[in-house]
């Protein structure tokens, strides 16, 4: 009797898990396996792949074969794009944190009735198309844009400063686009924060700065970690923002991958680059989570 009940419980568990498993297999693992497979095939002349095994794509990720004498050399172009992607994503995450943390703190300390209005103001841009938001940034920073014309009008500068099509423009754009992803998780932790703890620390001779450092920050750290991941990961793979604001001069990984599947007609290289991107994300996450975790141990 007990045994049959156990069996039916096990079966029910599998039935309940089935939809999630199906999504994992077909929507996540499946495409990933296809991408891995493509990276070991030969590119077709007009795009697509030819079904013959080749490791050329992986060579081309880090190295390049000279067109004439076929010697191998280090692929400076790819490495500088990798480096730029990591650098700009880290900067975007850092700036988003520096702006997002005080913002979340500000909203969380408002009276309950007005908090939702502030949150709405944070979320509204999120409902707008990504491309439109990116073009809005462009409109602000281009040579004839708001920033330059105001500064010229005020006589601060004579010539417009080249802001657009720079790494600064890309970082600014990504910061603007992904800021809500930093604010939301920090706000969620901050809202759950028991502010009597802040009072207690304040009562126990901790100055404002030390209250922030010793009580508020450690307690909202899960939110900061989540927000950083949510900003860093899409920044690393960003495609639209660097394309529009970098003007095709400042490529990031996303643009490089797109190039291989489009004009480059080198699908295996695109696939290999995609997996490289995934690997960078995984390594970054592992390093980040581990260092954040270790800090917690040394604190506690």
């Amino acid at each position: 009797m007990a045994e049959t009940r156990e069996i039916s419980a096990a079966r029910r568990r599998w039935m309940l898990l089935a939809p999630a498993l199906a999504i994992l297999v077909f929507a996540a693992s499946g495409p990933l396996l296809i991408v891995i497979m493509y990276s070991f095939l030969t590119p077709g002349d007009y795009g697509g792949v030819i079904w013959s095994f080749s490791t050329d794509a992986w060579f081309n990720v880090v190295a390049e074969r000279d067109f004439f004498d076929e010697t191998l050399s280090f692929s400076d172009a790819h490495w500088s794009i990798f480096w730029r992607s990591v650098k700009l994503s880290l900067m975007t995450t850092a700036v988003a944190f520096l702006v997002g943390f005080p913002t979340a703190y500000f909203i969380a300390t408002r009276p309950k009735a007005t908090r939702d209005i502030w949150m709405l103001l944070i979320i509204i841009p999120f409902w707008t198309n990504l491309l439109i938001r990116t073009f809005a940034v462009m409109e602000i920073i281009r040579n004839e844009g708001v920033v330059n014309s105001v500064m010229i009008g005020l006589g601060i500068i004579d010539e417009p400063i080249q802001l657009l099509f720079t790494e600064f423009a890309i970082t600014l754009g990504m910061f603007y686009v992904y800021l809500p992803l930093m604010v939301l998780p920090i706000y969620a932790s901050m809202e759950r924060l028991d502010f009597s703890l802040v009072e207690a620390a304040y009562d126990l001779y901790a100055s404002r700065w030390r209250v922030l450092k010793r009580v508020i920050f450690p307690l909202v750290k899960p939110g900061v970690i989540a927000g950083s991941i949510l900003v860093f990961v899409p920044s690393l793979g960003a495609y639209v923002t660097p394309r529009v604001l970098g003007g095709g001069k400042q490529l990031m990984l996303g643009n490089l991958i797109e190039l291989q599947f489009g004009q480059g007609r080198n699908w295996p290289l695109g696939a290999a680059l995609s997996i490289t991107l995934l690997a960078i994300v995984m390594i970054a996450l592992m390093v980040y989570v581990r260092s954040a975790g270790r800090e917690e141990v040394s604190h506690g």
């Binding site: 028991d194 009597s196 703890l197 009072e199 207690a200 620390a201 009562d203 126990l204 009580v215 450690p218 307690l219 604190h299 506690g300």
Partner: peptide, 13 residues
């Protein structure tokens, strides 16, 4: 110094 009604002990310490 204050002893708070809900104690307000720091949970991360």
């Amino acid at each position: 110094n204050t002893v708070f009604q809900n104690y307000a002990l720091f949970p991360h310490m």
